[in-house]
Amino acid sequence: MNNPSTPPQALQQGAGATIISGPWPTYAQFKSFPDRERWMLYGSAKTYRAALEDQGLVMSESYDQFVRRVTEELDL
């Protein structure tokens, strides 16, 4: 049984890379923003993901799934 004060353990992949399984930030609340701001948020989301991957983290959500989800949430 999980202790609520103990964080869940990260999954491990291959040569010790940590798999990040979420929860991911949602961008749906920004759907009503002007087009320019939504594109800026999309760029920021991609930059943040790239920074995590550059640190050796592996996302459970594929890049294609990520792009599809964020563009749908931002209505792009």
Rank of each mutant, 00 (worst) to 15 (best):
L41N: 08
F33D: 15
W24I: 08
R36P: 03
G56I: 09
N2I: 00
T6V: 10
E61I: 12
G14Y: 06
Q65Y: 08
S32Q: 15
R68E: 14
P7I: 01
F30K: 04
L52S: 09
A17I: 01
G16A: 05
G14D: 13
P8G: 01
Q12S: 01
Y63T: 03
R69D: 08
W39A: 14
M40I: 09
E72Q: 13
E72T: 14
T6G: 00
L11Y: 00
R36M: 10
R68M: 06
Q13V: 08
P23K: 06
T6L: 04
L11E: 08
I20A: 12
V70A: 01
P7Y: 04
Q9T: 07
G22F: 08
F66R: 03
Q9R: 09
V67H: 04
F30I: 04
E37T: 13
S60F: 06
Q9C: 00
V58I: 13
M1N: 08
G16Y: 02
G14H: 07
R69G: 08
V58K: 12
T26K: 11
D75G: 14
L41E: 08
G22L: 10
A45H: 03
K31D: 10
S21I: 13
A45M: 03
S5L: 00
F66S: 04
T18G: 01
L52M: 15
Q29T: 14
S60M: 12
M1G: 12
M1H: 10
L76N: 05
E53I: 04
Q29F: 11
L76T: 03
E72C: 04
F66G: 04
R68H: 08
P23D: 09
